[in-house]
Simulated scan of single mutants.
Amino acid sequence: MQSIYAMHQNGSDNMEKEEKFLFYSIDAIQDLYLIMLSSLIEICKKETVFLHLSSQKHLATPEERNPNEKFIKNSIFQILAENNSLSIALENRKINNWTLNDDYIILLLNAVKESKLYAKYMSNSVNTFEEDRDFIVALFTEVIVPNEKLYEYLEDDKLTWVDDIPLVNTHIIKQLKAIKSANDESFRVPKLYKDNEDKDFVRDLFRKTILNERELSKEYDDKTPNWDSERIAEIDTIILKMAICEFLKFPSIPVKVTLNEYLEVAKEYSTPKSSIFINGILDNLVKELQASKKMVKVGRGLM
């Protein structure tokens, strides 16, 4: 949707160029995932170095000589640091953001140590794996994710990440919660695409919508008698075209799936009343397409 919108705004007809950027922006989601997840590892490393240097000071206090290492020995930190899937992905994708910008790690570490979560966690000398895991989940959710400086850094790095940040963070939290024990080796860096068919769908939906925009717009033109085409938000017209494209040119996608997906997109990206407007048009259009047998869906339960 955003790629099609960008083409409209730029007055571009270079579909190949926009398609390359589309896949580039999707590919970059994995970098964002790795950057966010590796921030936990780097925070632990930074605190480990700090504790060591403090213990070596000439006038070190008793607390500095024998620091409380509960934080740096948290089980989740150890699992992430030793995870092959994560290490390989970081190496292959050449993720070195925190090496180049370790001031953000210091900033995050300070925010962690100033938090009530940290104080409560460190006050208890007896800990369990469940406590370690719940602490890291809460820390990531309540301290790291909402950090404005971190958000600004990510936004400046890649503007396309603005919409991807909630998706990535939600997935990381889900993965952290799913770790069952200190010996759990099931953690894996997720694939961007489920399979080749998944990736093909991205390209096909983009191309078929772009190449058939005029034809697709005709399907809803007479369904908006009280609206001049100029008054309909451009995002709404793109959402309508993409939904209709799925109705007509993707026989394996259930109608209800298309309807639900695009109504959610409208709620997130368009005007407050857009989802109601789009729902009304698509609902009427579906009945018309089914009656005329213009829309053919294959498979059980697809209507």
Rank of each mutant, 00 (worst) to 15 (best):
S275E: 08
T170K: 11
A119H: 15
K191S: 09
A81K: 05
I105S: 05
S292Q: 04
T99H: 13
Y153S: 05
L100W: 08
N84M: 04
H171Q: 07
D204K: 11
I144E: 03
T237I: 10
A291F: 12
G280Y: 07
S87M: 02
T258I: 09
L192C: 02
K46G: 00
E288W: 05
S85K: 00
D156K: 14
H8V: 13
N196P: 12
L240G: 10
A60F: 00
A178L: 04
Q9K: 15
L302I: 10
R300K: 13
I79T: 01
E64H: 00
K180V: 03
P166S: 01
S229Y: 06
L176G: 02
D156Q: 11
M295K: 07
F277N: 11
D184Q: 00
K297G: 03
M303V: 07
F140V: 04
Q30K: 15
L154P: 04
E18K: 12
R231Y: 13
E185C: 03
M15E: 15
W161N: 02
P251N: 03
I232P: 01
T48E: 11
Q56M: 12
K46Q: 10
L139H: 05
I210D: 10
Y24I: 07
Y151S: 10
Y5S: 15
L139I: 07
M7F: 14
E19W: 09
A89F: 01
P166W: 01
S123K: 14
T48Q: 12
E131C: 06
M122Q: 13
